[in-house]
Amino acid sequence: MGWRARILATLVLLALSISPALAQLRGVELYAPRGFGHVIGDTLTLTADIALDAPFRLDSASLPTPRALNYWLDLRDVRVKDQGVRDGVHRYTLDLVYQTFYAPLEPRRLTIPAVALFAVDGERRVAVDVPSWSFLMSPLREIVATGPGPAMALRPDIAPRLLPTAPLMRGLLLALGVALLALLLLAWQMGWGPFGRRRSRPFARAARAIPAALAAPAADPALAASRYARALQALHRAFDATDGKGVFAEDLPGFFERHAAFRAAEAEVRRLFAASRRAFFGADPAGAQRELPPAELVALSRRLRAVERGTA
């Protein structure tokens, strides 16, 4: 709106003696936009600060209704804000939004008429006048066209535009992305597809559980024996998990039938089972370690992991 001119509507004090009721009106201050340079179709907002003595209220029935005031001026909007009572003064802010449709040929002074309102307190009524306001309207075009082209060339039409598809496309891609993520998460949770194979890789787990340090000769034979036994157990658990049930030496032909890939390591597997039979049932850990030395056990665990992975 730019800067605002401030017009104080002075009270006619003479009227006091005629109408004592006027004392109830403290004042009407009008805040207006700049008073020049308005063109056809512009909206003008006049703001009036109205101060009344406390028991008086602005009569809302006296407010103008938005309508066409005359052939060039529309009252578009009327907004009243009650600012409440302070120090015995009831203040209101009244916004009047006008729209002018005057088409001047040269800058022309026009006047927005005064608005007559009423303040009421029970039976008493006081007139509250929002003063008139005048401003200059400017033309948009010269009187005789001197520019190039035809004199009354219209501004071009608004061409129809296509419906926007980008937001829909973005939403679709987002939804598909979320669906794909959810599907992957579900597959991981359910162990479908590649996740299933990853989850059931018992030999990989066994190879991880058997430390490379097992291959190095240990100083304490008892400690070495218990580590060797744990390594054997880890491998046995891997066989059990792969077959889905306990695998013993006598089950090995069936195991190789079901899991043909492991046939590549059949001799070592048989030695492993022989060693564990000695270790767990023969109570001969030293003999077992001679049958399958720790270094070879580590190598076997790596081999079986490779077979399981399919890279042997």
Binding site: I40, G41, D42, T43, N70, Y71, A103, L140, R155
Partner: peptide, 28 residues
């Protein structure tokens, strides 16, 4: 212009139309 008071092309063309046929005040 009532819907969009800042629509300059409509202001310009309305100005052209206004000069073709002037508005006149109706005696209310």
């Amino acid at each position: 212009l009532t819907l969009d008071p800042g629509f300059w092309d409509a202001k310009y063309n309305l100005d052209i139309a206004m000069r073709l046929v002037r508005d006149f005040p109706q005696i209310e």
